[in-house]
Design a protein around this nucleic acid. Structure first.
Lengths: 121, 121
DNA sequence: TCCATATTTCTATAACTATGGAACTATATA
DNA sequence: TATATAGTTCCATAGTTATAGAAATATGGA
């Protein structure tokens, strides 16, 4: 990850409404939520929410899929993890042992990974 | 950590100069760096850097100490870890197993912690 | 085709943020 | 005390971002 991309991701999260949206989606997990439901739960006007969702999407933190008339948004765990890894890169003067790389993915993906590679540190 | 505090921290990181400063300090580790050296290494004008360092400090991401005429800045690893934990809170619909909490602290602190508590899931 | 629903894009406005020159404050040394 | 060094605060300016009303687009169903 490059610095400018990280700034885009951090800017996307650095706003109260968007941070709320993101955390709601992180908690919702893989199934995600339709825009209307996000708007309702968080009390955000539709055009405002649309603007914020576009930012999160552009930053690679969420992705969008259509289901009939609804647009469903869900966390992009890869984007989120890339950001966290970038922030902790070369942490503690290059001595990384013990500085666990942040990981958060849908459970199914985690189980697959756990079987195939050793992962973290 | 509360949402507004997280937004402050994320806003602090969501700017190219500040992100560069922060990462430089993350990599410098506990000893930190004097403001002048940060300015020189990153090519940022003194008043501009001072403005950015103040933001990072206010956000709890770095701390400042004086050494003679120099003001030394260093990463506040607690602040950084609190932010990352906040972002991954209740990750994957509350099923947290495998979603490692990001941890990055000076090595000495880590060793102490490792002996005293089990830590990370 | 017509209508309702879900969401986005357009637009103007108000609010916030970054920048660096000039002036200031703090510390050290002679 | 005078001088130099290290860094900060003040200030004006330029640029960016958030907001929601109105209009537009996309989908599904009668």
């Amino acid at each position: 990850m490059e610095s400018k991309i990280a700034v885009t991701a951090l800017s996307a999260l650095a706003q109260e409404n968007r941070l709320d949206v993101f955390r709601l989606l992180v908690q919702a997990g893989a199934p995600g939520l339709p825009a209307g439901q996000i708007a309702e739960r968080l009390g955000i006007a539709a055009p405002t929410l649309s603007f914020h969702l576009a930012q999160l999407k552009h930053a690679g933190l969420v992705h969008q899929r259509r289901d009939g008339r609804s647009l469903i948004y869900a966390t992009n765990y890869d984007g989120m993890n890339a950001l966290m890894s970038f922030l902790t890169e070369n942490c503690c003067a290059g001595d990384r042992a013990g500085c666990g790389v942040p990981v958060c993915e849908p459970q199914s993906a985690r189980l697959v990974r756990r079987k195939s590679k050793g992962a973290r540190s």
